[in-house]
Design a protein around this nucleic acid. Structure first.
Lengths: 204, 204
DNA sequence: TCGATGATCTAGCAATGCTAGAAAATCTAG
DNA sequence: CTAGATTTTCTAGCATTGCTAGATCATCGA
């Protein structure tokens, strides 16, 4: 048989990665509706059935895999914020990092939260990377000077709030140019008015 | 020619309504991916091209029309809440009404906020019904005992928060059964802890 | 060199949104 | 009541989609 050993395994793994990279690039550049199995096959210079060798569940499984890379990146972005600064500063950093990610990788974010995907959520089988993003929110909340009684519930609400802003923004539903105002309003709501100098939010 | 006059006009209008009803029913029962032009044509007992007579932009325009009926219903639901009660009570009524609508008509809500749709948002041409829902949020906020400085921005954030909860809930991302806790947490956040007796949220 | 095993491709299916052109129905004129 | 014009509707088809069965090609061990 072909080198069933390390070399072949590495080739397969690389080809899998190329499929995911092609899918994500295509999606970010032209939207998910442009991510067809034929175009993906073209991109990796193989025929369509090869895709199904890597992802037996087909296109949906590819979207899922892209979503998981997104969850990983989001977890890293939210997990590396440090715990210096005031309540409001840490909260602002969290919100900004989240919205930044959603804004920089809109199609990936769609895969994570909008598109149908083969991941069990809110379950014992939920992948660790998915949980880690949520944990970053929880931990920021529990570090507040006066943390909410029920941190878990508060984290769900805060997550909902940032996700809502991201989703509405992405769908073009919010007034353009008010992003910073919204962030400050949310931060004040969650972290309280005091505890930090005004950030002088003036960035575009 | 055919009765170009009132009768014919009424027939056309009725057929248009039947298309929309069929689309909405199908979507609520089997999801939007089941809403195909062939199935719609079957449902109204005409052939596919008839659909394009009513909706020249095709399927997307049908989804758009369903979304607009949804915005209308949402505006009615949020606009008929009355201004009795404490800050927290009014805010709770608003949030509940919004999440209720989203929960009762998930596919319609998808059309309004998830699917691509031919409506100009955040623009001068935004349909009135779309604006009215937002206005209900704004008005509830401005009636608070101590309203936020920037009601418009606060309304965007609150809208984001409820939409986020609705979206995450719909996508199965939130712990089941905690809905009431989340609502109370959000209400407390926006309307302040005081001003109302605890509602004893114990409903399923 | 040959047969077996694995990898890959070709070609096709059923379903989708949409549309051109034929057919049918309806109205107006005589 | 009939004939022509007009409007309405349908049939049939295109290109695209996700996916897959079966043929073809490459690689390996003996």
């Amino acid at each position: 048989m072909a080198p069933s050993s390390p070399r072949r395994a590495r080739q397969l793994s690389e080809r899998r990665d190329r499929i995911l990279a092609a899918a994500r690039d295509l999606a970010e550049e032209q939207g998910w509706e442009a991510v067809t199995t034929r175009r993906l096959a073209d991109a990796i210079e193989y025929s369509q059935p090869v895709l199904y060798g890597h992802f037996p569940q087909g296109r949906t499984e590819i979207v899922t895999a892209v979503a998981l890379t997104g969850f990983e990146e989001l977890a890293v972005a939210l997990g590396s914020l440090g715990d210096a600064g005031s309540d409001a500063e840490r909260m602002r950093a969290l919100v900004r990092a989240y919205l930044d990610f959603a804004g920089r990788h809109p199609a990936t974010y769609d895969a994570m939260f909008l598109l149908p995907v083969l991941v069990p959520f809110a379950s014992d089988d939920t992948p660790a990377v998915v949980r880690q993003g949520f944990d970053a929110i929880t931990s920021t909340l529990s570090r507040l000077e006066s943390p909410p009684d029920d941190v878990g519930t508060a984290a769900e609400v805060l997550w909902g709030a940032v996700h809502g802003l991201a989703a509405l923004h992405r769908a073009g539903r919010l007034a353009a140019g008010n992003e910073d105002l919204r962030i400050e309003a949310l931060v004040r709501l969650v972290a309280g008015g005091a505890g930090s100098r005004d950030p002088g939010a003036s960035a575009g």
